[in-house]
């Protein structure tokens, strides 16, 4: 039984990214192979902004997700269209738009919604956090 997580809630306007984090920790703790991938859409893509600096006495959500990705080898996908319009840009998009900077945090990758469709068809369930 493998799940995909779809997170659509903004990391600032909602607790979607926080709740999903608690869920994925609990799931992986009990069933290490239970999560195939995590897809961020809508404002949730802001989680992949490496230039965001949370106050030192608050949780660093981006870092917390990166730790999950590193420890459990779980891919973190950001919808490319949603990310690019919000300024979350990787190196190749940066070149494509002739920008001087890129802002995508490590362990996150930009993918089309087709990747979500693929995850949908290769896992038992998608759980949306919004």
């Amino acid at each position: 039984m493998q799940y995909t997580l779809l997170i659509t809630g903004s990391p600032y306007q909602s607790k979607a990214c926080h709740t999903a984090l608690r869920f994925i920790r609990a799931a992986l703790n009990k069933y290490p192979d239970s999560i195939k991938g995590v897809f961020f859409y809508e404002d949730a893509v802001l989680i992949g902004n490496q230039t965001a600096q949370p106050p030192r006495d608050e949780v660093n959500l981006t870092k917390a997700w990166q730790d999950i990705a590193e420890q459990h080898k779980i891919p973190l996908y950001l919808c490319i269209a949603a990310a690019v319009r919000r300024g979350i840009i990787n190196e190749s998009e940066s070149r494509r738009y002739e920008l001087e900077q890129h802002t995508l945090a490590e362990y996150f990758q930009l993918e089309g919604l087709g990747t979500l469709v693929d995850l949908m068809n290769t896992t038992n369930k998608i759980i949306q956090f919004r």
């Binding site: 659509t8 809508e42 269209a81 949603a82 089309g112 919604l113 979500l116 469709v117 949908m120 068809n121």
Partner: peptide, 17 residues
């Protein structure tokens, strides 16, 4: 939200889902 929800619907349809 509606725009991105509809975009997702169009992608699903484009992939014949």
């Amino acid at each position: 939200a509606c725009k991105e929800g509809l975009d997702f619907a169009l992608v699903l349809a484009t992939f014949e889902q």
